[in-house]
Design a protein around this nucleic acid. Structure first.
Lengths: 342, 342
DNA sequence: CTGTTAGCGCCTTCAA
DNA sequence: TTGAAGGCGCTAACAG
């Protein structure tokens, strides 16, 4: 078989010039009905499909955006990605996706590759704050929106959630339940989100005149089990845990279950970031819920706004989305069904 | 500012022809060290980056594959997608991703769009079996690999898991625990995977001389609650449930919890498809675990093999990956830690 | 080892 | 309303 039919094949068959075919296809300029019909017929006969590659090359606009995220197996990121792809699809754009595994070098290389492919814009969840090598300048005139985590470059748009405020309110809720010794459990303060949540927690503790007590390093089930055990057996054991992301929640919950701790009777537990089946644990988990899809949607929409305008901001927008507190039972509340506080 | 520097800008600055620049860039043919250095310097000086769009256009190979899946918010699909993007990244390919929401029309349109963008190949989780409009013929010479669900066209490669065999073994396990009335709970028999699992279940029941009892329609928490309630209150209530995917598991688990059923004492529950935190429910759930990432990896690898060979199969491969049974406690087993059967 | 020519498929520009 | 020419940036093929 031969290669695909081109515009001139269609033109020849229809007995017109290539421009006429182009015009019929794009509807930019009026073409007489008569010729239009002939062209249409030729298109169908040859099963002609315009070569998008040529169009893109010609116009230097790819009708494509890039999406760079750490992982897809993390449901939070996957939800963000889902929203971005959905927005793009609605606008007729394609999405090139890539994962960085939180590695700034991979991130940099992938961003470069996307730029070489002339994406019309980029949506990025930057690799760990201090390390991300992305700067506004490397993107030239290509708009970029960061989300979930900020970037140091103030010229870049960024969409975040209320990490600090949400964490603070969650902590206050525990304090209202009468808890005075609340342990904050996280992965690493080097992660922007974890750190922001820690700051909210600390603020609430300080405002209540309580001492904060944080552990960073919930990297594995074993490490976490050890630490939880140590805390519970030490002097002044905590009466509540606040886990700062899904992974930490998982490990701490696992530790508490395997230690036979009764919740919320013996100990309260609350978490940042809701997850599927958080209401199926025993007891159902009280959490701060982040709007993952909403964040992706907002970030993508902002990007398309930039693309449409064709101009870059001097100072990037900084959009902070509200979180919700979902009161279930692990905090000590007795709601039969979850109560959501906005 | 002007537009990006092109190859001839570099060539001019280095005092050579464009071909020399091209050769330095691609290393296809030897260039004298002296000139190579001059070219390199010019490249750096101008911050020149080759225009991938032009390359792609020229070669008609996009170094890009397409990935079409139903949703990204489903962790199972997200894991598949993660594996595909990882394989592609390792091979220096980009991935264009799109979601269909199980809608065959969206699927068709998106596949067309990807073809127009000249992806070098496609990995697809087809929309519901009967409805998918994808056929081998629409893809011309572009290789396509379907996974998780088969396609009717036998010329297409497909990667699946042991839905029927896994389901059968899981059912047999329940029977070994002494259960005689086991209800199979699913979304819809029109879904390939659900139906295949049902067949495995039915086979095991029949082989044991037991009557099968299936309910399809676990579409919402409410529907499922009603049905579970009805079954438990009817004559000959089931002593075990087998839920055929994560969503059904979620709903049935929710129903059982809200009805105050004690598991596995009052009732056993097993599920197809493992999920994060399945070992945090009470009791920890016994499941059939599908290798989501493995499936994505295998599908992508198979695609790259086809791309490399440049020839299409007369008869597509049909690869079936093994599943594992993870025995936790909801089936009646008393393992303290999960036992995995291969 | 290096340069010239030509063309991938489309669309902007200009002329008919 | 239509067509012809030209070029986007790159590289295969051929000369030198």
């Amino acid at each position: 078989m031969h290669s695909k039919p081109t515009m001139s094949d269609v033109a020849r068959l229809a007995g017109v010039g290539t421009m006429t075919v182009s015009r019929v296809l794009n509807g930019t300029v009026r073409v007489s009905e008569e010729t239009a019909r002939r062209v249409q017929k030729a298109i169908e006969q040859l099963k002609y499909r315009p070569n998008q590659l040529a169009r893109v090359f010609r116009s230097q606009r790819s009708q494509t955006i890039g999406l760079i995220i750490p992982y897809l197996y993390d449901p939070f990121f996957a939800n963000c990605a889902h929203a971005v792809t959905t927005v793009a699809k609605d606008r007729g754009f394609s999405v090139i996706i890539t994962t960085t595994n939180e590695d700034p070098d991979t991130e940099y290389v992938q961003a470069e590759q996307m730029l070489q492919r002339h994406v019309d814009g980029l949506v990025v969840i930057p690799a760990h704050r201090r390390q991300s090598r992305l700067t506004r300048s490397m993107f030239g005139r290509t708009p970029v929106v960061a989300f979930d985590r900020p970037v140091s470059d103030p010229a870049m748009d960024v969409v975040l959630v209320q990490n600090t405020a949400g964490s603070r309110r969650m902590t206050e809720h525990l304090i209202e339940h009468g808890h005075k010794r609340i342990s904050f459990m996280g992965l690493s303060r080097r992660l922007f989100t974890i750190n922001a949540r820690f700051l909210g927690y600390r603020r609430a503790m300080q405002d209540a005149g309580l001492e904060d007590d944080a552990y960073f390093g919930c990297d594995s089930q074993d490490d976490t089990l050890q630490m939880v055990q140590q805390k519970l057996r030490g002097p002044n054991p905590p009466t509540a845990f606040f886990t700062s992301n899904t992974l930490a929640s998982r490990y701490v919950l696992g530790a508490l279950v395997s230690l036979g701790v009764k919740m919320p009777h013996d100990l309260a537990l609350v978490a940042f970031d809701d997850f599927d089946l958080a209401d199926m644990t025993s007891p159902p988990l009280t959490v701060v819920r982040q709007p993952a899809q909403e964040m992706g949607r907002v970030a993508a929409s902002l990007l398309f706004e930039r693309i449409a305008r064709g101009e870059l901001p001097q100072t990037g927008n900084r959009i902070v989305l509200p979180v919700e507190i979902v009161l279930r039972r692990s905090c000590g509340c007795k709601h039969r069904t979850p109560v959501v506080i906005h």
